[in-house]
Design a protein around this nucleic acid. Structure first.
Length: 192
DNA sequence: AACAACCTCAACCGCATCAGA
DNA sequence: GTCTGATGCGGTTGAGGTTGT
């Protein structure tokens, strides 16, 4: 039934804003077939969209449990701290903020936080460089750790007194998370 | 009221990586 | 080991809304 539907050529795909009808069709098909094989899903749903577009729509808008708007002060603080640690690793940052998407965080950063950070750096005489080295190091670690779980990132550096599992297990304990991030930032500041 | 400038955010694009044949 | 399609990510764009003049 499903894969006999000929896929449109790339140039024939619909672009631009999604309609409520398209959303409904997409959600229906995903409910039955699951959120994978996006090209097939697009075909089954009869959407004149590419698979990528369907995936993005689902991930950023239709997926259940998505929080929309109103980033709280606590979330903002966490974003700032995680960005300092990880750089533009939006998906990693989003993974620590339940219900938030990488796209939303990226947009929020670009429209709100980047300005804030720039202002702060100007005021404080700009210690951006200092953070840079650590940020790169941490981003690299984060990538490796994401792949090879169960290794100890802190083991290499005796100054870093935290557990890597804790690093990636933010669960929902926001307060605790902020605590270790603070701890890490203290280590970071003592790095130079 | 009219227009320009600015802001926000959904969506697209290109590239990298992964997984299966 | 190689090829190919699927998936994921980060950067960028552009439409629509808001604010300022």
């Amino acid at each position: 039934m499903e894969e006999n539907v000929p896929a449109p050529k790339r140039s024939e795909f619909n672009k631009g804003a999604w309609t409520a009808e398209e959303d409904r069709k997409l959600a229906e098909v995903i409910a039955v077939h699951g959120a994978r094989r996006w090209r097939t899903i697009a075909n089954i749903a009869g959407l004149n969209r590419c698979g990528k577009s369907c995936r993005l729509r689902w991930m950023n808008y239709l997926r259940p449990n998505i929080k929309r708007g109103n980033i709280t002060d606590q979330e903002e603080d966490l974003i700032l701290r995680l960005h300092k640690l990880l750089g533009n690793r939006w998906s990693l940052i989003a993974g620590r903020l339940p219900g938030r998407t990488d796209n939303e965080i990226k947009n929020y950063w670009n429209s709100h936080l980047s300005k804030k950070v720039n202002q702060n750096e100007k005021q404080s005489g700009g210690s951006a460089r200092q953070g840079c080295k650590t940020q790169k190091r941490l981003a690299e670690n984060a990538n490796e750790e994401a792949r090879e779980e169960n290794t100890c990132a802190g083991c290499e550096d005796p100054n870093i007194g935290f557990d890597v599992d804790e690093f990636f297990d933010f669960s929902n304990e926001d307060t605790r998370n902020l605590e270790w991030v603070s701890r890490f930032l203290q280590v970071d500041e003592g790095f130079n």
